[in-house]
Amino acid sequence: MGKFVIRRILWMFLVLFVVSVVTFLLMHAVPGGPFTAEKRLPAATLKQLEAKYNLDAPLHIQYVTYIRDIMVPVVTDGKKNAALDHKYLINIQLKDEKNTVIRWMDFGPSFRNVNRTVSDIFRDNLPVSMRLGGAALLVTMFIGLPLGIVSGLKRNSLVDYTAMAIAVLGVSVPVIILGPLLQYALGVQAKILPVSGWGDFKHLILPAFALGIADSALVARLTRASLLEVLSKDYIRTARAKGLAERLVVFRHALRNSLIPIITVTGPMIAYILTGTFVVETIFGIPGMGRFFVTSISGRDYPVIMGAVLLFAIFLVLANTLVDIVYIWLDPRISYE
């Protein structure tokens, strides 16, 4: 198991390397740059800006510099330095006599929000998305799993049809419709919950629900299908033939095995949902990471594009590793050794 995890972490670095190179080349290949604007900048100003941000260097040098700034830690003395605090993601103050500070992972400045750095964005905006995403995942699972289990067990009953109708509705109503509907009903009309904003628990409810509901429908349908398939397996018949109580047959034998496909989709879902979703964050005015995936690309904000893509890649690899570990737990036949 330990060996497996280490291997996966090593693989992650390879994945990150490939992802970073491809992203880097692609974003530089797209026409226009970070300072391309409706009101173009004079050539001299443009040149100054490119020099300031090292954009006039050859591409491979830019790439190497970028990676070096992330990987190589620097050590500074304990003098207060706000500029460096913002620049580096990790600043660790040692308790020695000189108050040495070890700083690590400089993801570069944002070209669009010129007084912020990518580290600032990770620090301020990522936790918001993670909180929202975590809440949405809870919504997904608390609605999706019970619906799927109930309709799987009571196949072709009224309960099944009702549950699946709800699921189809959940999948079919996109969040871009559901979000404003919720806002209008509960925010504008009933005035129970705030329309937009972030900070308190009450701000979390509508967006988490809007974001979680579509995936919960997916989970419900998947659970149902998977449960039905498992219930028709030979070992279930054997269990029943042995005279086991139906409750045990379902919960001990069927459910456990039917969870595997659900776990499989949950991995990428975690990565998507925790790193932020543009639409929900825009509709509910939430200061999360999601918008940066979109605005950085349309604005050619190179360091933010790189940061966002790498972040997502890390989340995806970690979530999938987690899924693989859960497989072993669920199905002892699976082994990675």
Partner: peptide
Amino acid sequence: APTQAPAETSPTTAP
């Protein structure tokens, strides 16, 4: 998440 370093793990950051 390795990229995640909120203020509590980085005393000098203090944003």
